[in-house]
Design a protein around this nucleic acid. Structure first.
Lengths: 340, 340
DNA sequence: CTGAAAGCGCTTACAG
DNA sequence: CTGAAAGCGCTTACAG
């Protein structure tokens, strides 16, 4: 592989001059430029980016850290982010982490290795950011968890109000006449600002406001965010509480599993059991029945995050925290309970 | 940001010694190691990868180039690849391209910038590889398209036999008694080894072997690989040929759109129209009805590709081309046509 | 076991 | 306009 030295030697100029033409600097004679350029071309020379970055520690590139790629919702946001970044001609790399890995650690590694202009976190939990994140000083944005309480000057966040949205979802069930409602999904965690904790909380809000009685021990079955987990958890829940007429699943994926479970018991959605999901992924618009769900505004979450990051990178705009409005997407999976 | 110099200064050892503990070399006293390690921890020091790579120009890292991230099937394979690579402690980065971008160009850029150990292509088309790929000399593997005809010494490939699989899928419809079969999805392209061309071909094989008449102009409706496109294309197809009793969709995603279209017309799957898909993604096991489909062996495709790449990187094993067996996954979306 | 020094491929003041 | 030289953060023979 040819290096800048080879180009200098072959062209008869110094490496300084070669570097100048490489970087389109002024102060190079036309002659030198054309000679050097032709040598570069004929040697098929590619500058070594590592060396460049080492010497020119200007940050470059944007990194997206996605926690859990099974998550269709996150992948949808990622898709929009990539699309928008491409329009801005920004080069972005994606790093996938599984649930057990620490996104802050990954971010530190990226920071050290690549000197990124900015980092986006998809699906992280606020909790992790309270710790060692302090040491990071690159514009960052957390999507899907509110980081305002973290109070870090380099961290923006864009979120859906999980608690309020869950309340709306469950209220829809209550308004349809359901009083025996089951809740599916999410794991009980120790800290209070986890997405599923907030959603569970919102569901409880709806019930207590409407004076619908609810026993968390009986009517709540936690599970991972996957169809299979949703399928199994719904089975456990329905075995335990056969009187349930409505189910709120904390994510669409879990809802799909639940709908399949209901169907396997010879029951119908929504005639026997109504189901409401959360997220608003595309699948729900094509399932039979279409899923009634909370639609998080994927485009807006992506657009606002991208704009925020770019403006902070280029104009030093301060970090911001925004809650993006959600909406209730009326599908076909909710109806009034049968009179019994 | 702390550098190796800072660690040396603070710990009281030389940068050479620090480097040695960083790289787990022998010949470092226990004392030095523990002192230095604690300084590294307390300074939260992260070695600069650029500098490391500069000095150690050994290739590092594996890159996966995914063409089209809307593709759930490809994302499933990616997931498995990442999981397996992690088990081997290999660091992998993912680069997403949209359909219009050239994966070879992306690969050349990656090669120059990062000196990768290997590159995996997900969802590329053989055609692109016939061109400038010649210049690449890093172990590569193409997944989902047969590259044996390209004949490049650095390119392996792992595929499903699309044509044979599509033949099986359509044969299942024929065996159930269907004679008016529609085909959905894929775009007619100029070159013959495109996935959808092969699948269409296989479908035609099945029909002609069974002497089922088929008019490509009428009973084939091409469309992109998405639920929405499948939904729309199914509408066009059913408007044009209301006598259809069975549909073969060249991908599950398209099949989901088609099933929803059928349902919206007040028809039932499979009572009125049977549907067979292609890919075998998880969603199909939870839809109502469950989708009967060709199951490409996602784990095996991922596992074989990973093993192949690693063995070629470490042991200079020659490139190979393998066809991974598929199976027919019996769901609930196919039955015999109603007597009419 | 440890330190001093050369050098990886580049960029960038600094002279001329 | 051009060259010589320092230095980016690391690794690795080479001495000791």
């Amino acid at each position: 592989m040819a290096t800048i030295k080879d180009i200098a030697r072959i062209s008869g100029y110094s490496i300084g001059t070669v570097s100048r033409v490489l970087n389109n600097k002024a102060d190079v004679s036309e002659k030198a430029r054309s000679v050097i350029e032709s040598v570069i071309r004929e040697q098929n020379y590619q500058p070594n980016d590592n060396a460049k970055r080492l010497k020119q520690p200007a940050p470059s590139g944007i990194y997206v850290i996605v926690r859990g790629m099974k998550n269709v919702f996150l992948v949808s946001i990622l898709e929009e982010i990539l699309f928008r970044m491409r329009e801005h001609k920004e080069n972005v790399s994606v790093q996938f982490l599984n649930e057990t890995e620490d996104e802050i650690e990954a971010a530190m590694q990226i920071t050290a290795a690549y000197r990124p202009k900015g980092i986006m976190f998809l699906g992280g939990s606020t909790e992790t950011f309270r710790g060692s994140f302090r040491d990071i000083s690159v514009p960052c944005v957390l999507i899907t968890a509110d980081a305002s309480a973290v109070g870090h000057p380099d961290l923006s966040s864009f979120t859906t109000d999980d608690r309020a949205a869950a309340e709306v979802a469950v209220t829809k069930l209550i308004e349809a006449g359901h009083t025996r409602i089951g809740i599916l999904g999410g794991y009980p965690v120790s800290y209070p600002d986890d997405n599923s904790t907030l959603r569970l909380q919102g569901a409880l809000d709806a019930m207590s406001k409407a004076s619908v009685s609810f026993s968390e021990d009986k009517y709540y079955e936690p599970c991972a965010y996957s169809m299979q987990a949703g399928y199994e958890a719904a089975g456990i829940l329905l075995d335990r509480c056969p009187d349930i007429t409505g189910i709120f699943a904390v994510s669409d994926t879990v809802a799909f599993g639940a709908m399949r479970q209901i169907s396997d018991r010879g029951l119908s959605v929504p005639d026997d059991i109504s189901v409401v999901g959360f997220d608003g992924i595309e699948n729900g618009m094509y399932s039979v029945p279409r899923l009634s769900t909370i639609r998080q505004d994927i485009s807006e979450l992506a657009a606002r995050s991208v704009d925020d990051l770019l403006l902070r990178i280029s104009y030093g705009r301060p970090a911001a925290h925004s809650v993006i409005p959600f909406s209730y997407l009326e599908g076909e999976s909710v109806s009034s309970p049968r009179l019994s």
